[in-house]
Design a protein around this nucleic acid. Sequence first.
DNA 1: ATTATATACCTCTGATTCCGATGTGTCAAG
DNA 2: CTTGACACATCGGAATCAGAGGTATATAAT
Lengths: 110, 110
Amino acid sequence: MKVDKELSKGSHELILLKLLSRKDMYGYQLIQEMALLSEDVFRMSQGSLYPFLHALEDRGLIDSYAQAENGRERRYYRLTTAGRRALEDKEEQWAVYVRAMGRILRGETT
Amino acid sequence: MKVDKELSKGSHELILLKLLSRKDMYGYQLIQEMALLSEDVFRMSQGSLYPFLHALEDRGLIDSYAQAENGRERRYYRLTTAGRRALEDKEEQWAVYVRAMGRILRGETT
DNA sequence: ATTATATACCTCTGATTCCGATGTGTCAAG
DNA sequence: CTTGACACATCGGAATCAGAGGTATATAAT
């Protein structure tokens, strides 16, 4: 099942930072892993991914290095220290967000 | 705590439909209830809300009626049958979305 | 050989979503 | 008689994202 993109939008940063926190990855690979892990709920397009990665790099949350593998040039992205901090922050925000939605959906008064 | 708006964006439709499924409400009231129930995690601005409500009305998910209360004119919004269906759909999508994010954050291979 | 497919990178443009700023007017409290 | 909470609304800009398009290589199929 695919959810409306308005929902999955906005979680891209958290997802990418999280994936990169486990191992360095290149763009194409990030798209595949994201789809695999989420069971196809998150399918980020290349047109979204690459500008996004460049922006994260500009903000200093990730950096990158080129590496040739079986003749193909790949650009690997790696989480920086600032990126690791940003990830922690995002994960906490995610938890807060989910709890808040839970309260609304269950209709609790507190 | 307030989460980055990129996260809370996209949940507006689900939240509004859910609130209206419990009782008819007017715009200002929706903003207040949303903030109260979410403990200030979701603070929708008027500049977002009213165009949003009009759009939901155009799509037939809600309708509205004016009602005067202590001299003040209020426009109450009410969920339609189509709106109720949309809400069910959105709630299911929300569950799918949260599960998928959970898998990614926990790093499960399946 | 050649064609198709998967891999791998990238940019540009438009659509959509949302918020801040701004505007109108009412009511109650000081 | 002014300030602040209430209540409605529009407009313009900022940000996010996907689709369409472009380049190029490796491999499998025909």
